[in-house]
Lab assay of single mutants.
Amino acid sequence: SSRTRFTDYQLRVLQDFFDTNAYPKDDEIEQLSTVLNLPTRVIVVWFQNARQKARK
């Protein structure tokens, strides 16, 4: 499976959201998916990875 290449804009939006809320609800994931034009699955994985990094 090929890795998703995020744009600077997508990363900024995801990071800004994460800084406020590391555990987005389903409807928030749907909204991010629509706004960023990314599959919900990709967003879910991004947040999982971001939470892992934040824990270190």
Rank of each mutant, 00 (worst) to 15 (best):
S1P: 02
S1A: 14
S2C: 15
S2K: 13
S2A: 03
R3Y: 15
R3K: 15
R3I: 15
T4D: 12
T4V: 02
T4L: 14
R5Y: 15
F6R: 01
F6W: 05
F6V: 08
D8N: 04
D8A: 09
Y9I: 04
Y9D: 08
Y9L: 13
Y9A: 15
Y9V: 11
Q10E: 05
Q10S: 04
L11D: 14
L11E: 14
L11Q: 01
V13M: 15
V13G: 13
L14H: 00
Q15C: 05
D16V: 05
D16S: 13
F17I: 08
F17H: 14
F18W: 11
D19A: 14
D19M: 10
D19T: 15
T20D: 06
T20C: 12
T20V: 07
T20F: 02
T20Q: 07
N21T: 11
N21H: 06
A22L: 06
A22D: 12
A22C: 13
A22N: 10
Y23F: 09
Y23W: 10
Y23C: 06
Y23Q: 07
Y23E: 15
P24L: 03
P24S: 00
K25N: 08
K25P: 06
K25E: 03
K25V: 10
K25R: 11
D26P: 07
D26I: 03
D27Q: 14
D27G: 15
E28P: 00
E28Y: 04
E30K: 08
Q31A: 07
Q31K: 13
Q31N: 03
Q31D: 13
L32N: 01
L32K: 01
S33I: 00
S33W: 00
S33T: 12
S33V: 02
V35F: 06
L36T: 13
L36A: 09
L36Q: 00
N37L: 08
N37P: 01
L38V: 11
L38M: 10
L38Q: 08
L38G: 00
L38F: 05
P39I: 00
P39F: 00
T40S: 06
V42S: 10
V42Q: 08
V42M: 05
V42F: 03
V42R: 06
V44N: 12
V45K: 05
V45F: 04
W46A: 02
W46V: 01
W46Q: 02
F47Y: 06
F47Q: 01
F47G: 04
N49H: 10
N49D: 14
N49E: 13
N49P: 01
A50T: 09
R51N: 02
R51E: 08
R51F: 06
R51W: 07
Q52I: 11
Q52C: 03
Q52E: 14
Q52G: 05
K53V: 15
K53E: 15
K53R: 08
K53Q: 08
A54M: 12
A54W: 06
A54T: 09
R55L: 15
K56Y: 13
K56P: 13
